[in-house]
């Protein structure tokens, strides 16, 4: 094998590290997107027995946005294995305990339950905020586009911007704003 062929192989099987900002993202929609990169199904060399999945670093998992009233209605079931060991945890409770778990479980459940699933999950690195270890940050070479735009709240606009925003009417001088 010539050295050019060797590095071609090396580059073909290189693992890419992606970063994904989960703030204001639906974890269940994100799971389907992240799965593709974790398993490497987007690659032309993909095969179920081919170890070609990428790494994904997810930041701001504490700021995910569940659709509708999912925070209140979604229930995570756990059983210790002992009698009366069943427990039901609401999504908001689980999120309070560990802000990475809702997303992690969403990704885990989006994949088929086979022997590869746990190894694929090892390539998913979730951080509740933007504090990522420097060694991990140095690996990253790609940012994944988020499916939803992050909305900007009124309190994020500066006073000047609010002032300059075109209004359809002005309040009368003597109008008292409560």
């Amino acid at each position: 094998m010539s050295s050019l062929k060797r590095v071609q192989q090396w580059a073909t099987f290189a693992r890419i590290w992606h970063i994904y900002d989960a703030s204001w993202q639906n974890p269940f929609q994100s799971a389907g997107l992240l799965k593709k990169y974790l398993m490497g199904t987007y690659k032309p060399i993909y095969h179920p027995l081919n170890d070609c999945g990428d790494h994904v670093v997810v930041i701001n998992s504490g700021d995910i946005a569940l659709p509708g009233d999912e925070w209140k209605k979604r229930v995570y079931f756990h059983h210790t294995g002992y009698p009366r060991g069943a427990s039901w945890t609401l999504a908001w409770q689980l999120h309070k305990k560990d802000p990475t778990l809702v997303l992690k479980k969403a990704v885990y459940n989006s994949m088929d339950g086979n022997l590869q699933r746990r190894y694929t999950m090892e390539r998913l690195h979730i951080y509740p905020d933007a504090n990522v270890p420097a060694d991990i940050m140095k690996n990253i070479s790609n940012q994944l586009a988020t499916p939803r735009e992050v909305p900007k709240r009124l309190d994020h606009y500066s006073e000047k911007e609010v002032e300059e925003f075109p209004k359809i009417m002005d309040y009368p001088k003597n109008y008292i704003l409560r």
Binding site: A11, A14, R15, W17, D135, I136, N139, S141, N142
Partner: peptide
Amino acid sequence: CNQSAAKTILANYQ
């Protein structure tokens, strides 16, 4: 031009 996984054993540079 490119680099990936720089801090791992599978580092790849272009």
